[in-house]
């Protein structure tokens, strides 16, 4: 279950190709998160907890892998300063059938939103502000 936490930009397409190569699984699903623009926002700063972040992401990927018998799962998440339009993170899952791959990717996203120690700060024309966690993010965990 490869998990990478990095400042460097990455090519989600190339990562997905590399991930898919040589798999016996019949289904691969991926999600890519991109810094959203609008509302005067120009960039985002992502802080994380080195050490715990990797542990938490690995635990979440292992849990997804157990629940849906994944052949493989990939999580890449960046931190540091990112401009609007840059790729923040991606997950990919590989399973025998698409339902498992979709569900596992959805689970990974729900959990890494509120159980992996990342904090987003929006940087805009009017200043900076920490992004508040949404009650809906916490509720999303209950469905698993």
């Amino acid at each position: 279950m490869p998990v990478r936490v990095q400042t460097a930009a990455f090519d989600a397409g190339a990562e997905l190709n590399g991930f898919s190569k040589g798999l016996a699984a019949g289904a691969v699903v991926s999600f890519t998160g991109i810094v959203r623009g609008g509302g005067g926002m120009t960039a985002m700063e992502i802080e994380h907890y080195p050490g715990m972040t990797e542990r938490a992401l690995t635990a979440i990927a292992e849990e997804a892998s157990r629940r849906w018998s994944l052949e493989c799962a990939l999580v890449i998440h960046r931190y540091g300063l990112l401009e609007v339009g840059e790729t923040i993170m991606m997950v990919a899952t590989a399973a025998r059938h698409r339902a498992e791959a979709f569900q596992a990717a959805d689970f990974l996203m729900d959990y890494l939103k509120s159980r992996a120690p990342f904090w987003k700060k929006e940087i805009g024309e009017a200043g900076t502000s920490w992004v508040d966690a949404k009650a809906s993010d916490e509720k999303a965990l209950a469905r698993w």
């Binding site: 509120s114 120690p117 904090w119 920490w130 966690a133």
Partner: peptide
């Protein structure tokens, strides 16, 4: 460690 609710993804 102490921190606010996490906002990954």
């Amino acid at each position: 460690a102490f921190f606010p609710p996490m906002t990954g993804g």
